[in-house]
Write a protein that binds this DNA or RNA. Sequence first.
DNA 1: AAATTTTTCGCGTATAATGCGAATTATGTT
DNA 2: AACATAATTCGCATTATACGCGAAAAATTT
Lengths: 249, 249
Amino acid sequence: MAGHDRTISVLKLFTIDRPVWTAEKVAEALEVSVSSAYRYVAILVEAGLLTPARGGSYVLGPAIIQYDRQIQLTDPLLVAARPVMADILRYAPSHSVILLSRMFEDTVLCIDQLVDGTYPTAEVSYARGRPMPLFRGATSKIMLPYLPTRDLRRLHAAHAGEIRDAGLGEGWDEFRKALTEMRRRGYVITYWEIDPERIGIAAPLLEDQKRLLGSLSYVIPKSEQDTAPRLGPLLMAAAREVEVRLAED
Amino acid sequence: MAGHDRTISVLKLFTIDRPVWTAEKVAEALEVSVSSAYRYVAILVEAGLLTPARGGSYVLGPAIIQYDRQIQLTDPLLVAARPVMADILRYAPSHSVILLSRMFEDTVLCIDQLVDGTYPTAEVSYARGRPMPLFRGATSKIMLPYLPTRDLRRLHAAHAGEIRDAGLGEGWDEFRKALTEMRRRGYVITYWEIDPERIGIAAPLLEDQKRLLGSLSYVIPKSEQDTAPRLGPLLMAAAREVEVRLAED
DNA sequence: AAATTTTTCGCGTATAATGCGAATTATGTT
DNA sequence: AACATAATTCGCATTATACGCGAAAAATTT
């Protein structure tokens, strides 16, 4: 178990629910001296990861914004997926959204979103950088079968209730069976599990048919229920194309 | 001079020009052992700031994307400025862009960008998170008069040529005089200094009329040359409004 | 201008990071 | 599939460096 850098622990305190911290509060939270808290904060400010706000408080800093742009321009998965996403947009019904997502800390994060031209994105819950539940919605569900068993055991132990409520089985065995079935089919369709008026269709992105990278998904209007099954195989093909692009260069 | 956290130094290696690193290359670059490099990388991966890519290499990770969204939703300056920006968009000629920017490491970073509805943003160089030159363009220039003198001395020593080319004076004294003049007027207008077909108009954002927070600017089409001077005072008023909003709560 | 709070600095001590080399795991090849 | 090679982790002794303390300095408020 790694991950015991004091300075980075400070950064982890800055969450959506608590985005503003003073050095003193940091010292309390991490149980270190105030001088150390100031030292940590100074390092993070120097790196641009934090920036001073009013009243001796600190918030996330400009380096984040710059790094985010760097990801948009250089991230291999993003770069490999983007043209494919643009390509498959034309096969989707209008008012659809295409998502590129990946796991992060027991949640699913939308990494990139493609919407057809004029459509207001606000109506779909998946927003770039917004953590989404791991067991609800096609985008999330399709990732589960490709997780290492130890992760699945831990997840099931911690979230058995959620897993049941998501229709993924009553106990461990049923859970595994549900996952096997998803893996066999190769894609997942869910009906208004996240947004009431939307259907999600998702396929996994894998490295060498094994390690999970993320998922590729359509979010289409409820009214397009008939088109949904056709889009599953289409997404699988697109996902494979992304995988190939990723492997080249 | 603080800022000597080894783990964070690793993060600083990941730039637009060199966005992919292996542990071994990190070890070389920082002149540490490979095991240490692996340790640092593991810490950053655990924090989500890095993520593994193909072939034992690493790239910036999902935490960046999540943090970026957090900034969008919670950053005090951003939150204070956004409604004001929306408000002053209606006074700008069509095909205009409004920018919220701040300094970062001797560059200027666009923090938020507001374009009128249908207009394609690609035609303006200022992109969210893209570092822009510190001495060219109204957005940048208007910040200079509010920098501490020691910063200005350092900048002038390092970039005397750029400063001259930007029309900010031949030597140190002329430079200071140019800055004083900008401060006196309260806003800056520049003509096609960044984009050939654009005029920039910018006003500073200050904390208690002193410390520089950033700048607020219009980017308007070249054809609107006559409107530009009217927009200067308008931006100053808007900037003051942002400052007040920021001070409340 | 005085008082109070916030932030930085200097320093001795002890903790925790470091490099080494070996063990383990992953990857690629015949 | 078995081997060879590379990539990554682990264990440990050493010493560097991050730590807390208290004081000094700076900033903020009264």
